[in-house]
Design a protein around this nucleic acid. Structure first.
Lengths: 355, 355
DNA sequence: CTTGTAGCACAAATCGATTTTTCAGCTCGC
DNA sequence: GCGAGCTGAAAAATCGATTTGTGCTACAAG
């Protein structure tokens, strides 16, 4: 019981005894500190290896003041359980990749419960934290700041957009690329479904669309959609769109959760994708992939985001200077929904990095 | 830097000094152990409260031999990053709920990287582990056993099906209920898409189907579908089905990942759901919810599974006798795909617990 | 011959808690 | 009046590592 096979696990003392030296010497030998005769060092290393010695993380942590644990804090509300869920598969990819990346640095990842009061957090021994999709006045950020726990965010913190300790996807640029792509496929009137108030995200989408529309002399067809209930909101908005005098001939869906509602509205109205109307999504995920037809979307590359975040956090903990916000560009997954029959098949898997 | 606000955080010594007692007395007072004058105890508790004292988990862990950390090990391969993913949203719900449940017991959850060699695990200080969907000869189980780390599984361990330390969903019963439901909606020839070799799961589905078919004098229409590539396999199998002399009038999809392929095959063949053919899924998720039309499915209730697993693990760590495998029954979410027009609308949200 | 210094290893202190043991003071009984 | 028993609290040992300071030896310089 207890930590690993605590009963049988070798301690530094055991190794010392076996190697006929003091624990001090073992510690120095294995950590390369102090002055030790090379031969002694080699011998100790061998003995430690043979005994399968691994330093007790708790003891190391206690002494060094570093627990070797990084917290991962997802933006899930208490309603993560409800049917009306966010892009859980994206978060799962992110979480899984974070665990791998942090583990690669010799630390481990702790999954913080979605809802957690700041108080409770004091009880937890964490060196740093990775906060996903911070929102306005995010309680997670506040709690961490109160406890002086260094953190790195994935996506900008709207409160402090210039915080260099963050990983960001170039949302605006993604929207621009999608518009460009749809345009190249012949779309003339492209609408954008933009989530209502969702951090810095929605704003970037809106701005990118506005500037693109201006450049291309296209009427601005942006519609805000309430995040909750996602299905009904999207359904209603798209339905309304289709009744316009001059309805759009392409739709960019700004948030994954609007996919089902949008597709339903299109199906109800008898519009066939991509023949009658092109569709693309700003965030790839199950909805986009599993839709019928599959939807063109931007893969945000959660794996690369996680890797970058883990690296930033490590730097921050090591007291290094901030290496600036890290921008992870997505990859355009072209699928049926945006390929007008007859047109030249566009390139898929295109890296959307800014040149 | 370091663990919390280590620089400023109050230790037991600080509390002792402030309360003019020894650290021993503080420890006893707060843990209710030893003999202490009630007045002294109350005073110490007040002082501790005022100073915001929280025992250092690392120190407690070192002394007690319990780290207070439970590992969560998901069945994700290195391909969790690929497009061809399993039900990531289900796992995310599970992970999130596990974090909450374990936190409720005063412990925290560590997310283990999907791929991890047994060696590396020794370095990690974990009291116990929750293993999701163990497979045949699962390396996770092996690694944990080698390190004598107690674990609880969600879904049965095919190697040791009688292991009482597990939470199981009554898969067979779920299939039975789906068949019953479809039958009540008028289906006469119900086919089952069963995943090829996926733990105890597929077997239970198959057995339940067989026995139900026997009872209802229905021809056995079971087809195994390869898990990879899920889309193409399902597509091919369903396509073939539709070309049978007497094609099925309803399909039960055994694994969520087969949904897109199935729906595509149906759409390609011009079959309209639910008018021409009824569909239901054994596992609810994004695919089932976001499909067009939305598919009737069984919500496995990952939240309840997680709660049960956390409780079982806690019991196991406390040395209690196994409280038997815990069966968590799903909830039938009736959606459009299984409601034959004209028929009485069936009850949704039905708890599938065995009476 | 003494002193200085470098090399190598160890003893002891430390991290922050818990657990075991000790101890002072007080009451009670004989 | 003296040992037994009880109460309340503190001292000391412990968990397993790291870090600081100490000591011994050998060899070179004064």
């Amino acid at each position: 019981m207890g930590v690993g096979r605590s009963s049988s696990r070798a301690t530094i003392r055991d190794v010392a005894t076996a190697a006929r030296v003091s624990p001090t010497t073992v510690s120095h030998a294995l950590n390369g500190k102090g002055r030790i005769h090379p031969r002694t060092r080699a011998r100790i290393q061998q003995v430690a290896e043979r005994m399968g010695y691994q330093a007790n993380r708790l003891a190391v942590g206690l002494r060094s003041g570093r627990s070797g644990v990084q917290a991962l804090w997802l933006p899930l509300g208490p309603d993560a359980t409800a049917n009306d869920t966010l892009a859980l598969d994206y978060y799962m990819r992110l979480a899984s990749a974070t665990a791998t990346a942090v583990f690669g640095h010799g630390d481990v990842v702790m999954l913080l419960p979605p809802v957690l009061e700041g108080q409770d957090l004091t009880a937890v021994a964490v060196d740093g934290a990775i906060v996903i999709d911070p929102g306005e006045g995010d309680r997670r950020i506040e709690a961490l700041r109160a406890l002086e726990i260094p953190c790195v965010t994935i996506e900008r913190n709207p409160i402090d957009p210039k915080d260099p300790w963050c990983v960001t996807s170039d949302t605006g640029h993604h929207v621009e690329c999608l518009l460009e792509h749809l345009s190249a496929q012949g779309a003339q009137r492209i609408a954008l479904l933009v989530p209502e108030a969702f951090g810095a995200w929605a704003e970037e989408q809106r701005a990118a669309y506005r500037s693109w529309a201006l450049d291309h002399r296209q009427e601005r067809l942006t519609r805000p959609v309430a995040l909750r209930p996602a299905f009904e909101s999207a359904l209603r908005v798209v339905r309304a769109m289709l009744r316009w005098q001059r309805p759009p001939d392409a739709i960019v869906i700004g948030a994954e959760r609007f996919v089902p509602g949008t597709m339903r509205a299109l199906a109800d109205a008898g519009r066939v994708v991509p023949n009658d109307l092109l569709v693309a999504v700003a965030v790839d995920g199950n909805y986009a992939r599993g839709s019928n037809p599959p939807l063109t979307a931007v893969d945000l590359q959660p794996e690369r985001q996680a890797t970058a975040a883990a690296e930033l956090l490590r730097n921050r903990l090591d007291g290094l200077a901030p290496s600036g916000p890290r921008t992870i560009s997505g990859i355009l997954q072209v699928r049926t929904s945006s390929q007008r029959p007859g047109r030249r098949q566009p390139q898929t898997g295109k890296f959307l990095g800014v040149s």
